[in-house]
Design a binder for these strands. Sequence first.
DNA 1: CTGAAAGCGCTAACAC
DNA 2: GTGTTAGCGCTTTCAG
Lengths: 342, 342
Amino acid sequence: MSPPRLQDVAARAGVSTATVSRALSGKGHVSSRARARVQQAAHELGFVVSYHASSLASGRSRNIGVVLPYVDRWYFSTVLEGVAGALMEAGYDLSLYNFEGDRYRETVLTDFLLRKRLDAAVAISLHLNPAETQQLLAAGIPVLGVGGPLVGAPTISIDDHDVGRRATEHLIALGHRRIAHLGGAEEFGSHFPMSSDRRAGWEGAMAAAGLAVGPAWSVVSDYTFTDAYQRAKNLLADPADRPTAIFAASDEMAAGAVLAARDLGLTVPGELSVIGVDAHPIGEAFGLTTIDQHAREQGVHAVERLLEHLAGTNHEPVHEVLPAHFVVRSSTGPVPGSAGRS
Amino acid sequence: MSPPRLQDVAARAGVSTATVSRALSGKGHVSSRARARVQQAAHELGFVVSYHASSLASGRSRNIGVVLPYVDRWYFSTVLEGVAGALMEAGYDLSLYNFEGDRYRETVLTDFLLRKRLDAAVAISLHLNPAETQQLLAAGIPVLGVGGPLVGAPTISIDDHDVGRRATEHLIALGHRRIAHLGGAEEFGSHFPMSSDRRAGWEGAMAAAGLAVGPAWSVVSDYTFTDAYQRAKNLLADPADRPTAIFAASDEMAAGAVLAARDLGLTVPGELSVIGVDAHPIGEAFGLTTIDQHAREQGVHAVERLLEHLAGTNHEPVHEVLPAHFVVRSSTGPVPGSAGRS
DNA sequence: CTGAAAGCGCTAACAC
DNA sequence: GTGTTAGCGCTTTCAG
């Protein structure tokens, strides 16, 4: 037998389909008596509204798209967890669109996102150009950016420049003068727009303290543990000319650097201090000092903003900046051969 | 102005809506001339079919659900990447349902999955009981299980018992006699059903070799780097009575064990051999010997199977076993104080 | 507060 | 090969 329809419920409850719809959706006024009978009937029949019919008739689908460049990287999967949980609480479905770098960028943007089956979308650390953003907005899909700049759309993110500055100043305060940076490439800007900002924050703090920053200490990696491990090993190879501290743009890279140092026989933080960003769980075992950017909360908050937007009136593209917090553990300490200051 | 409808395209191309529908979907026969005009008109108007209308009318939604207990853990996010890519290639949408452990288990199963908006679902390493599986199947949603047993539904997975056996035999062949296991809890069985199988494989191999397996060497962890690090440290603390090798049920745990060993001053593989499972990228920097279970391919293959199922006739619940392969690196070696065999 | 009825935009028989 | 038309199952004016 086919699944029960709204009409079946109406018949059983002895009311019209309109009343059933109102009673079940909570929209419009229904006498509590009618409501009770409807709910009773719906329950007995095991009725579930048809998503497609409901969406077609109402124009809304209670479905939100999440667009991201990777799902198997910590930041993205963590934000995704936050988004998924918040949407679930709100009774929304979540459609996932993974660029896989840039592999499906075109496909997602043209074939998938425009099928008008989304009430809104959140773009995680994605650099959409104005044309792409406009395309979405023109299709009637409000977009919210998380962790990346989105021209013409509201965003939430942390202040990456400030994060870079604070991490660096923490090391400077410990007496370090020779501080290297391990971050993402500029070209990675399309997916990791924060990279250059964190690097700029480091450069700014170094300059403000009158410290030199050679190109050799401005290391470009790809945000993976393994690549960072290798690059840190190269960076630290020469005992005569190596930094005493490293600021890594992510905890995974920071952890890779710690492992590299150990493999070279260097103690952390005795001979090398390392600080990361993220509060990645792996940092705990490494005793990593880091700056927590509350990735999961970013996802939760993104959904709150988006639902407000859908419900409400406030459609200005506000760029909201979320706080990030120090988590000091044991990977940072006074510079070697000093009394230190901590 | 409102978006163009099928009718607008029909008018512009000078044909009926039925022809437009056929021309655009590729179903049914349309003269190439009509097809060309339709495509032309559709393009000029920027027409995109309405997903909801199409789904309502046809009963199919080109949307597949992915149900999993976590998204921020390597195995799950990697399988998810594979599934997402394969679905994208096939032009299917992907709806994500995250249990977050068991937090949303009920909600997902009752509120979300049954809304008849899914053509099918893949359950990643999820232990659905027969009633839950039946509920889905009864709702007309074919389910495929990846990496976990699903009663009454087709599945694909590796042979975890065999993996445990092979990993252990690798260590035994290197001369090890004191081999510990770091795996998941039995109770974790609801999400990591492979845990107990890998452990059983280890026990079996040890027994077959006539080797003792004390309860102290059968360590239960939670599949995280940090927990494994801590437990391995405890396991290795006593120099007088510690294993010479560890078989960990995942690379993350194996890496945690390697770090623990180093923090205790033990060399790997000189004083301790470690082998994991997964081919997690982090294993590279650790030089981890592992068994690759090809997680991404599991996801890709799951989609292939599901689409075949949707297209075809073969509806038997086949349990397919995929191969897993050794990746020998530098974390395993001859037992300490022996000439070794390799 | 409730019912009748007109669609929402497309697909799939069924005719021609 | 192509057009006609009856829905798909629900929401939402508009009356009452």
